[in-house]
Design a protein around this nucleic acid. Structure first.
Lengths: 164, 164
DNA sequence: ATAATTTGGTTTCAAAACGCAACCCTATTC
DNA sequence: GAATAGGGTTGCGTTTTGAAACCAAATTAT
């Protein structure tokens, strides 16, 4: 049957994953952060099939992560650009990149750190911190939605509960 | 054809998404962070099909995000627990949750902030920061892999030549 | 002006992935 | 010894994916 969707989940992670949690969406957002704007460039640089790219771009536009703009110059007719909402995925992407770099480094290559353009120094490793900036572990944080905080996710019935 | 995989991509975001970038994996990790450990509990609380859960748990164990432990008590024979690598996804999950809470809040409900258990105060909003803790935007950060830094993602054909 | 090309798509279709239900095996409990 | 619970696997029909073909508007080349 259809892939499950989480539009109406009360868990915001689920709702977030509903918008950018598939194989391509976050890579498209990343590519947009790299500066890519045109359909063909996304296609070439990501190596994604055109129909899938179409679908993902449309969905990202629907979800207000990207904005489709008409530009009548040079044969390219529109550009896909990040919205504020899309740009706000920056911490997510960076956290994911740092995780990937730490736990799945490319064997032969040196660790390519992310650097502040202005100073050239490495950026901080993303961390969950309390109000004073002290790092917090999972156990330090009260996670609303966790079993010990409130009820878990909905859809407890395993019988024919179509989420939508 | 087969879904694309990015095991060998030189982009660490792609490699990270290869491990936890599907619809369920990150939700399973989140659930594990909530304290869930047993197969049946994952199934009930996520509302996921058993075979899919099997597959995802096995893949997460393969990728060293979860560890499968034998516990011989009470009819349940194993538990799935986060490894250090899995626990290190905490910033990713929190960043994603904050993004979801900010941009897709549940209409009727108050914003349930994440709080430090010890102090009860809200945790900081995840941000990309320079070495001194100053917030950085996308443009402030040199992203290795970006077109203006190095070559883009792996490509088979360099058909697009717009670099005048 | 006409042909060839580029951009941004849609259509077609096989291979995969998903979801449900049914079944299986082991260990416990009644 | 039957029923139950944990943890899976198998079958099967539906959905998604991806490569390539096809398409239309706009541009560039001839």
């Amino acid at each position: 049957m259809a892939r499950k969707r989480f539009d109406d989940s009360h868990c915001s992670v689920a709702r977030a994953l509903n918008e950018v949690g598939d194989w391509w969406s976050l890579l498209i957002v990343l590519q947009a952060m790299y500066g890519t704007r045109r359909f063909v460039d996304f296609q070439t640089e990501l190596g994604i099939a055109k129909n899938i790219l179409c679908d993902r771009l449309a969905r990202l536009v629907d979800n207000d992560v990207l904005r489709k703009e008409e530009v009548g110059e040079h044969g390219s007719r529109h550009e896909y650009r990040l919205t504020d909402k899309g740009r706000d995925l920056f911490p997510v992407v960076i956290a994911l990149r740092q995780w990937g770099d730490k736990w799945n480094p490319v064997p032969g290559q040196p660790p390519l750190d992310l650097r502040d353009r202005a100073s050239g120094r490495r950026i901080r490793t993303m961390a969950v911190e309390d109000a004073d900036g002290r790092p917090l572990t999972i156990r330090d944080v009260a996670l609303p939605g966790a079993p010990d905080d409130a009820g878990p996710m909905p859809t407890k019935t395993t019988t024919t509960k179509k989420t939508g």
